[in-house]
């Protein structure tokens, strides 16, 4: 039983750490990339996976602490947040990209970067 608890703690820590890492790469990409569309590449992917991983870690933690019907409902709510972020984040990214395209932001190309 103790072994199981250690294992679950390990899983939670790994999930949280990976989530922080991917959030960090998304943020760094937002700061470093030269172009508006490249920045969107970073945020659209990194945020989705980071949020999913951290929320999964929270789900494991809640179920480990206290396994009852009330916590099961909370888990379902968190799973709904994961589902929603999984669908809403790419959609929002696409909406911003299309808005940028329509408002006349020209994407950088290979030749622009060489100059």
């Amino acid at each position: 039983m103790i072994l199981l608890e250690y294992f679950l703690n390990f899983v939670i820590i790994v999930l949280l750490f990976l989530g922080i890492f991917f959030f960090f790469t998304a943020t760094l990409g937002l700061l470093r990339f030269p172009d508006f569309y490249c920045k969107l590449q970073a945020t659209g992917k990194g945020d989705t996976l980071g949020a999913i991983l951290i929320l999964l870690g929270v789900v494991v933690y809640i179920l480990k602490e206290d396994f009852s019907f009330a916590t099961f409902l909370v888990t379902l709510k968190i799973l709904f947040i994961i589902f929603f972020i999984f669908h809403a984040n790419p959609t929002a990214t696409h909406a911003i990209t299309k808005a940028g395209l329509d408002s006349g932001i020209i994407p950088l190309t290979k030749e622009d970067l060489k100059k």
Partner: peptide, 15 residues
């Protein structure tokens, strides 16, 4: 993405 961002020279060729 992590490889691209953490690479010092950022080897991107957008198209």
């Amino acid at each position: 993405l992590a490889y691209l961002v953490l690479h010092p020279k950022m080897p991107i060729e957008p198209s």
